[in-house]
Design a protein around this nucleic acid. Structure first.
Length: 500
DNA sequence: ATTAGGG
DNA sequence: CCCTAAT
């Protein structure tokens, strides 16, 4: 018996120690967590509950179970979001809003990702990371753990979190459990958990790393912990650390969280610097984020498969792991809501991003995704000003966006043409192309693009062929050949080739 | 300074 | 997106 208790203690200590180590990066994590929270919060403006939940988690759990509450929060948030969408939906305006929001959300995520990536993950850290992760989980305690693991492993949500609007409650519960969990008492349990965790983690991350080794190590320690004092030493701190953890982070968290977007960006940057130092942390977060995002996507898709919207978002993200953005829906772009919607979210968001980026480099090096609204604007602009007038279009439509140079516009157009299948697209299957296309653009847009494409041949289109055929794209577009209302025909159109 | 075109 | 050549 003595031995056992002793052993327990040791174990506990061990854990503690580990935690302590983590602390350094814990702060970083916390930052990230905040970011995530913000992200989540963004999309849900309407759903306060989520916000609260997140906040809570961040505050109290903060360092201790970063990961845990993190995932939970995320999941919950996502869920809520989905629900919200579902319920609200239907209205075009709503849709737009949602989409925009989503866009922002994704954007944010992507950014985080970028940051993570920037720092780079070192392989060496991996094992360490793993260790930490699992350690953390361990701390969390049995019940929680179980749910957590299950959660990660399977896409399905954990029961504890349950989608109920009372997510907050669930979380609080968890936290409560976690905190009180005494390492000494549950030593055995912890041990068992540890093992489990290892397995779970492994599968989750897909990394095989040293999980096994760790497990062995742990066991070994238990066995000879008597001999290995250093383990204990490390461990002993845990208790203290843990407490510290709980109360320490709170304040800032609270402040930051409620502010959401605006503050978030700022804080984020700040934190970023800190995070940079801890590679391990970074790595961990990275994976975490990844997972989360994936999950989010999945959820969205599942919940709202109907709309182009969700699909689009997903595809976009997938296509570009780096930074996804969303696209508005198929809504009614033509109607001209863009004026409003665009400025609201897109622009503000863009602005923010730009700023952020400027700090690092001048202008985001690697392209920012085009939102549907942007594309629509572009098309409109082209319709009005004509094809070659990129600068004009830029001035008129994108004057507010710093990025998006005329060249960008042109490039985008080029891409659009390609995507639309106009221009070179074999007469045999434009639509087909679209089907398997990575990014399904809204029909309406496509239509317009096609329209314009017909009118002005952009890149040395096979004029010969076309002219021979009849100047227009032949059979591919049956119905909607002239659906676009805009006066694209305008006065000036094809001004490029024949000029000389 | 802008645009076209290619990477 | 970025860069270069041609206007």
């Amino acid at each position: 018996m003595d031995k056992q208790s002793h052993f327990h203690k040791k174990v506990a200590n061990m854990k503690c120690q580990r935690v302590k180590k983590e602390e350094s990066f814990a702060s970083a994590l916390e930052d990230e967590a905040i970011e995530v929270e913000n992200l989540l919060a963004e999309p849900k403006n309407e759903h306060v509950s989520v916000d609260g939940v997140l906040s809570f988690g961040g505050e109290n759990l903060g360092k201790g179970l970063q990961m845990d509450d993190f995932s939970c929060g995320f999941e919950y948030g996502l869920r809520t979001n989905s629900g919200g969408l579902d319920s609200n939906t239907t209205q075009e305006g709503e849709e737009d809003l949602q989409l925009e929001v989503l866009d922002g959300f994704l954007d944010e995520v992507e950014e985080v990702d970028d940051l993570e990536a920037t720092h780079g993950l070192s392989n060496a850290c991996e094992d360490y990371l793993l260790d930490i992760d699992f350690e953390k989980v361990e701390l969390i305690s049995g019940p929680r753990l179980g749910s957590y693991v299950g959660n990660s492993s399977s896409e399905s949500q954990s029961p504890g979190l349950s989608g109920s609007s009372n997510g907050a409650v669930g979380i609080s519960e968890s936290s409560t459990l976690t905190i009180p969990t005494s390492e000494c008492k549950n030593g055995a349990i912890n041990k068992a958990l540890t093992c489990e965790l290892h397995g779970g983690f492994r599968s989750k991350c897909g990394c095989q790393t040293p999980a096994e080794d760790l497990a062995s190590l742990e066991l070994r320690k238990f066995d000879d912990f008597d001999n290995d004092d250093k383990s204990f030493l490390e461990a002993s701190k845990i208790g203290a650390v843990r407490e510290k953890r709980l109360r320490k982070p709170t304040r800032r968290y609270i402040e930051e969280v409620p502010n959401k977007k605006p503050k978030c960006s700022k804080g984020r940057e700040k934190y970023l610097a800190a995070a940079t130092k801890d590679t391990s942390l970074k790595v961990r977060s990275h994976s975490e984020l990844h997972n989360v995002r994936r999950r989010a996507l999945t959820v969205v898709h599942g919940e709202k498969p109907l709309r182009v919207t969700s699909i689009q978002s997903v595809s976009e993200v997938r296509a570009r792991r780096g930074r996804p953005k969303k696209q508005a829906t198929k809504q009614a772009p033509i109607l001209a809501p863009e004026s409003e919607e665009e400025p609201l979210s897109s622009e503000s968001e863009d602005d923010r991003v730009t700023k952020k980026k400027s700090k690092k480099h001048d202008r985001r090096k690697h392209q920012r995704m085009w939102t549907l609204s942007e594309v629509m604007k572009l098309v409109d602009g082209i319709s009005e000003h004509g094809i070659g007038r990129w600068t004009d279009i830029k001035r008129n439509l994108f004057s507010t966006s710093a990025y998006r140079t005329p060249i960008d516009l042109r490039d985008k157009w080029r891409n659009l043409l390609r995507a639309s299948g106009a221009q070179k697209a074999s007469k045999k299957g434009v639509e087909q192309k679209q089907e398997h296309a990575l990014r399904p653009l809204p029909t309406t847009l496509l239509k317009r693009v096609r329209e314009l494409a017909k009118i002005h041949p952009y890149p040395r289109v096979r004029m010969s062929k076309k002219s021979s055929l009849g100047q227009v794209a032949p059979l591919m577009l049956p119905g909607p050949s002239k659906g676009a209302p805009s006066n694209l025909g305008g006065g000036r159109t094809v001004r490029r080739k024949n000029s000389t």
